[in-house]
């Protein structure tokens, strides 16, 4: 496994994980894409060092890299592609609804948290949570 590919995989995983922690939907989707690329690259490097394509007749069979991980990576790429397309559609729908691509807190979670803050004797206010409550980290 060449050191360059190892480094690229590491950088892709790092950037992907960082983007995943963001509150903006677009960044999360890009993060998922980067993570997917990192994983696919890792799969490719599992097949042996770069620069030895598994073409019959090009090299003696013993020095070829293993074609199976490449086939696996191809499958994984197709799956990632399809799911990313779906995620983009979902992100677009979310933007249509909220006109903002920030990820909101869950309504029920917010209401449970509010009940806990009010205490058992506190005012029971089951109205819809306000925008500022949904945006709190």
């Amino acid at each position: 496994m060449s050191i360059v590919l190892a480094l690229v995989t590491a950088v892709l995983f790092a950037c992907g994980s960082w983007l995943l922690m963001q509150r903006r939907l677009t960044r999360i989707i890009i993060g998922i894409g980067l993570l997917g690329h990192g994983a696919n690259l890792l799969l490719i490097t599992a097949g042996g060092p770069a620069g030895r394509p598994p073409l019959i007749g090009a090299d003696p069979v013993s020095s070829l890299s293993d074609p199976l991980p490449q086939a696996l990576a191809l499958t994984a790429i197709v799956i990632t592609f399809g799911v990313t397309a779906f995620l983009l559609a979902l992100g677009y729908r979310s933007w249509q609804i909220t006109t903002d691509d920030a990820v909101e807190n869950d309504i029920e979670d917010t209401m449970v948290a509010r009940r806990a803050a009010d205490g058992p004797e506190g005012p029971v206010d089951d109205g819809e949570p306000t925008t500022s409550e949904l945006g709190e980290m």
Partner: peptide, 29 residues
């Protein structure tokens, strides 16, 4: 509310799938 919670579900499942591919790669290696 479906879009909001669906988003969480899709993203967390994708992260798990990515981890799964990584484990597969390492296991194969």
């Amino acid at each position: 509310d479906q879009v909001r919670s669906g988003m969480t579900y899709v993203v967390i499942s994708l992260v798990a799938s990515t981890l799964f591919i990584s484990v597969l790669a390492l296991l194969y290696a």
